[in-house]
Amino acid sequence: MGDEVRLEENEARNPFFSNMDTIMNVEHLKMYFPVTKGLMKREVASVKAVDDVSFQIKRGQTLGIVGESGSGKSTIGNCLIHRIQPTSGKIVFEGTDLNDINNKTKRLMRRTVQMITQDPFASLDPRFTIEDCISEGLKIHHLISGKKEIHEKVCEMLEMVGLNPEVASRYPHEFSGGQRQRISIARSLALQPSFIVCDEIVSALDVSIQAQIVMLMMKLQRELGLTYVFIGHDLSVVRYISHNVAVLYLGKIMEFTSSDELYSHPLHPYTKALISAAPIPNPTVDRARERILLKGEIPSPINPPKGCNFCTRCPYADERCRQEEPPYKEVAAGHWVACHKVS
């Protein structure tokens, strides 16, 4: 049924395949948004959306970022595509530091780094035909000229994402959510990117369509050697598509590890709670599982708790957790955790 893909067939997708270079290196990334008050826009506080986050992304792999709303996962995505300038920290993409980027490289980066967003209803201009949508970037970046060539390219892109090329002359409102998401993917791919940030791209879709899009993204990655950052709140979907997963909480990475380790050896109490909160679609397996219920909700990033960010909801928190921020350290090869209770 459908196109089943066995991941192990493809060596390049093996998370332990070490001979791979780093496409993006993020060091101590911080993004604070000011909270202003009054007529003079006096800065009274700041929203610490992303607070000292470091990670690396290997070429051809997928980094999954999971977190609840307000954890800063979309802000990280926006920093990575250089849509917003981070408060501090360094993002090195293909050897270029995004802090001192000139206009020419910025233009190149706008082409090679793409973003696909959550809402397929808002991301396509209703007055553009599908061809206009997909070819807009091609024209801006002078990749192809000539009406016929552009049309051929658009048809090629549509076929690549599993749509009939005949739809090129139609308008977005004629398509369902899943088809629109395919069009968004085609639009991004037309610019031949090497790096795509996928921000909750399947969250708004039906279950059967989610699987289609996930499989499409994985197929495209294999064929085109793309690197993804896959942002989501559904741990099972994010883990399925990703090689490594970063678990984010209040702007900080709590745990970073390979996706198989994440389920088999989660170390951080928050990761454990997230795994426990995601029900498994099998009654025998799910009802036998240990249930960890967190109390309360994610605190405001304007006023994060002192010490460990998670201490207000953590079942194991003690005095040290409330006073001292846990260091983000590597406890096993490629497995990073920020928790006092993990040694």
Partner: peptide, 20 residues
């Protein structure tokens, strides 16, 4: 069509072709 957290990551995921 639903990814399973409890299975190894390379468990097969199937898709239902077409749209509702």
């Amino acid at each position: 069509a639903v990814p399973r957290l409890d299975l190894p990551r390379d468990h097969g995921l199937h898709t239902i072709p077409g749209e509702p």
